[in-house]
Amino acid sequence: MKDILKALFQPFKVVNLQTIYLLFGIQAMAAIILWQMSGGGLIPGPYKVMHGVINVISRPDFGENLFASLWLTTEGMGISIVLALIISYLYVIPFFKPLAAFIIKCRYLTLTGLIFLFTLLTKDGHQLKISLLIFGIVPFFVTSLVAIIDSIDQQEYELCKTLKMSDWNALVEVIIIGRLDQAFEVLRQNFAISWMMITMVEGLSMSEGGLGALLIKSNKYIDLSTVFGILVIIFSMGVIWDYVLGLLRIWLFPYTKIQTIQL
């Protein structure tokens, strides 16, 4: 027991999964107790927030709002990943390098100043939300995908050459097929950005509803237990999605789970 406790505070020590789960449980519990004890005033305690969660879930329009958010995220992510993959794959063709480089730098553009421009360019609220999501996500997607492409060992391309593949075949084999698992991982990681942005863009056009619209309405009436309740739902949905995408990655690309063996 003493050794386990010592190991918990030493760098690079490996502890078993059971201990990790136990640690997680204890720390989560401690945080909730601390939260409850420090509660009072404007910030609702965990009990009130749980009540808020139940209230939000019990609302007759909850399912509709949740579906609206999920659909918007999926649609935005779908279009974004297709665009980002195309731009990233084109990055290895010199003519398209400046385009990819520009899109990567677009991470530093703030969306707030561009909302008016997007409002002018789109025909309805849905299009506006999708466009903003895409504009917000694609630069991050492209940045991660280009970093993957840049880190590919030159020897892989050389292998393609010695196997008498054309440059296009090498692109397909090494970058497209060969890095599909990593592209999927980028999707998983960037899903968080998309999910985070959803509340912001849903606030711009509330006619379609969504969790973001619910959040803004509750914020307006300073209904903090509902606000925190929605945040807990958004957080939980994000964690579930992350877990599901993680499982999907292992199922689609089993080799990602294989450990290198040294014999």
Partner: peptide
């Protein structure tokens, strides 16, 4: 020219996303 000579690098580069059979099939 590139491709005239087959190479076996020191770290034996293979396509990690393909099975051994598929690596040989590509060849």
């Amino acid at each position: 020219q590139m491709g005239d000579v087959g190479i076996v690098p020191q770290d034996y580069i293979l396509f990690n996303h393909r099975s051994i059979y598929d690596n040989l099939k590509i060849a």
